[in-house]
Amino acid sequence: MADGIADALRESRAFVHTRSERRSDGSVVVARRRAESAGNEVVFDSSDDLRTTFDALPDRFAASDVGRVSGSRRHLLVRFFAEAPEFDCVLVSENPLCAEKGVPEE
Rank of each mutant, 00 (worst) to 15 (best):
M1G: 15
A2S: 09
A2C: 15
A2G: 15
D3C: 08
D3M: 08
G4R: 09
I5F: 14
I5T: 10
I5R: 15
D7F: 13
D7E: 11
A8Q: 14
R13K: 14
R13M: 12
A14K: 10
A14I: 13
F15Q: 00
V16I: 14
H17R: 13
R19Q: 05
R19D: 01
S20K: 01
R23D: 12
R23M: 10
D25A: 11
G26V: 03
G26A: 02
S27W: 01
V28H: 01
V28L: 04
V29W: 01
V30H: 00
V30T: 01
A31K: 00
R33H: 10
R33S: 06
R34W: 15
R34I: 14
R34S: 06
R34C: 10
A35L: 06
A35I: 09
E36S: 14
S37Y: 03
A38N: 13
E41P: 02
V43N: 01
V43P: 01
F44G: 01
F44M: 04
S46Q: 07
S46E: 03
D48R: 08
D49Y: 06
D49R: 04
L50F: 00
T52P: 08
T53I: 02
T53R: 01
T53H: 01
T53Q: 07
L57F: 04
L57R: 00
L57K: 03
R60K: 10
F61Y: 11
A62G: 10
A62D: 05
A63Q: 04
A63L: 07
D65R: 08
V66C: 09
G67W: 02
V69Y: 03
V69L: 02
S70I: 08
S70E: 14
R73V: 01
R73W: 00
R74A: 08
R74M: 12
H75M: 12
H75A: 15
L76V: 05
L77C: 04
V78D: 01
V78L: 05
R79M: 10
R79K: 15
F80H: 10
F80T: 03
F81I: 03
F81D: 00
E83H: 08
E83Y: 01
E86W: 07
F87L: 09
F87A: 02
F87K: 03
F87D: 03
D88L: 06
C89L: 05
V90I: 13
V90Y: 02
V90N: 11
L91I: 12
V92L: 02
V92C: 07
V92I: 09
S93V: 14
S93K: 11
E94L: 11
N95H: 11
P96A: 05
L97K: 02
L97S: 03
E100M: 09
E100D: 09
K101D: 05
K101R: 12
V103F: 04
V103N: 04
V103Q: 07
P104V: 13
P104I: 06
E105G: 15
E106D: 12
